[in-house]
């Protein structure tokens, strides 16, 4: 941009680089290193090189937990996108004032703590103050019981959590889309539901695939919903990792589980990136 050498700007860039390198990259590297250390019941760990933490992962229990996590995250991601995509399209058709209302609502929900959302659902599903009580009042359920903890309570929590994020990810593209094909289809007498499935879904396919994969990774990392709304048998890998690290103080095993999760995450994100690139061509 200028003929003058930009030493100042270089130093400023170096500051940003070091901050991220030291406090983001180094901890991740260190975690990989610790995953090869030996657990020490007396302290944190013994510095050696062992494979036993990874061997433990492939011994049934953790293996099953991860498969279950993969299943609930995948199901959650598909449900979230199925709900968020029509919402984003519908919001983009509103007046600017109502669009702003939705943006603020969604941003609030996106920023709101998992803890608060989990607590709110815990209450709305409880026998003393929520849907069960409403059903009793309406005479639909004579002896109401709490609906949580259960698999579907956890699922509602996950969908609720992911919904605002995905809608906000799709919305900008929905707002800027070229509406001429839709309008042409409508003019030719195509029913609106067919316009949605035959015009909108195909034209957003690359986005929908990459957003679903991103959401899958996001839900894999959710901690509060499984612990608050799910049963222990619904607990995901995230809960187990935190349990190993904080509860049992078995940091090397927790680190190994986290490294496995990191690998799954990296592969999923790479596929998402490829899907998006492929769609752009």
């Amino acid at each position: 941009m200028t003929a003058r050498p930009a030493y100042g700007a270089f130093c400023i860039g170096l500051f940003a680089f070091s901050a991220l390198a030291v406090f983001f990259v180094v901890p991740l590297f260190f975690m990989v290193v610790v995953s090869f250390y030996k657990p020490d019941p007396m302290g944190f760990y013994k510095v050696t090189f062992v494979w036993e933490n990874y061997q433990k992962f492939f011994a049934s229990f953790y293996y099953k937990v991860s498969l279950r996590s993969l299943y609930s995250s995948a199901l959650g991601a598909v449900l979230v996108v199925a709900l968020a995509f029509p919402t984003a399209i519908a919001v983009s058709n509103l007046s600017r004032k109502w669009q702003l209302f939705w943006v603020i609502l969604l941003l609030s929900l996106m920023c709101l703590s998992e803890v608060i959302i989990g607590f709110a659902w815990l209450i709305i599903l409880s026998e003393s103050a929520g849907i069960p009580r409403l059903l009793e009042f309406l005479g639909l359920w004579t002896n109401p019981r709490s609906l949580s903890p259960s698999f579907w309570a956890m699922m509602i929590g996950l969908v609720f959590l992911g919904f605002s994020v995905v809608t906000l990810m799709i919305y900008p593209q929905a707002a800027k889309r070229d509406r001429s094909i839709e309008e042409a289809a409508v003019t030719l007498g195509t029913p609106p539901s067919r316009v949605f499935t035959k015009v909108l879904v195909p034209s957003f396919r690359p986005t929908l695939i990459s957003v679903t994969l991103t959401m899958f990774v996001y839900l894999l990392g959710v901690f509060v919903m499984p612990t608050m709304l799910g049963r222990p048998k619904d607990w995901t890998m995230t809960v187990i990792i935190s349990d190993k690290a904080l509860g049992d103080a078995n940091l090397p095993l927790g680190a190994a589980l986290a490294v496995v999760m990191l690998v799954v995450t990296a592969i999923t994100l790479a596929v998402a990136l490829l899907a998006e690139r492929h769609g752009q061509r």
Binding site: A16, F17, L20, A21, F23, F24, V25, V26, P27, L28, F30, M31, V34, T214, V217, Y218, L220, G221, F223, M237, T238, I241, S242, A245, L251, G254, A255, A258, M261, L262, T265, L269
Partner: peptide, 21 residues
């Protein structure tokens, strides 16, 4: 590119890495 990273990773990985660090 580094700055986009934390947004994409599950928070548990960041959290565990940070606590070990």
């Amino acid at each position: 590119a580094l700055g986009i990273g934390p947004f994409l990773l599950p928070p548990i990985i960041l959290a565990l890495g940070a606590s070990l660090f």
